[in-house]
């Protein structure tokens, strides 16, 4: 959720990395690291795509429930935008605007409900990505920055 770069962009990137390795080889640590990162993306992306629709549907439903109990035109407008959202990016846009409004006109109960949904979203997304261990075996893989 709210992650930059789409699945097609990542797939193209993996392809470029493989093509570069085919042309130049992978005979140093740098080139091998590039290939391993592409491999890690392949597993994580597979898990993400596998769980994406379910997670987005849950997020829209949970946010809709949180907003249904609120008064105010901003909450209603955000609920409509979220219900119509085709992807997580559109949900994020609506939420960012609403939360900015709530900083100007505080509604602590609504803010707390939205925070609770977002926290649960992070837990569900991590669980979805952790399933990448089952896609091709082994750990999802981290990285040395």
């Amino acid at each position: 959720m709210f992650n930059p770069l789409s699945a097609p962009e990542l797939i193209v990137g993996m392809g470029r990395t493989m093509r570069a390795a085919a042309g130049d080889g992978a005979d140093d640590d740098w080139a091998r690291g590039q290939l391993l990162s592409a491999y890690s993306i392949s597993r994580l992306l597979a898990a993400e795509v596998d769980g994406e629709a379910e997670l987005l549907a849950w997020l829209k439903g949970a946010l809709g429930a949180a907003l249904a109990a609120a008064d105010g035109a901003e909450a209603a407008a955000a609920a409509a935008r979220i219900e119509a959202a085709a992807d997580a990016g559109a949900v994020g846009d609506a939420l960012v605007e609403l939360l900015a409004t709530l900083r100007e006109r505080p509604d602590p109960p609504l803010r707390a409900r939205l925070h609770a949904v977002l926290r649960e979203m992070t837990a569900r997304e991590l669980a979805t990505l952790a399933a990448s261990r089952g896609v091709a075996g082994g750990r999802a893989g981290g990285g040395s920055r």
């Binding site: 930059p4 993996m14 990395t17 990162s37």
Partner: peptide
């Protein structure tokens, strides 16, 4: 073209 930059979204 550093693919690790794309990987970091995860």
């Amino acid at each position: 073209a550093d693919i690790r930059a794309a990987w970091s979204r995860f």
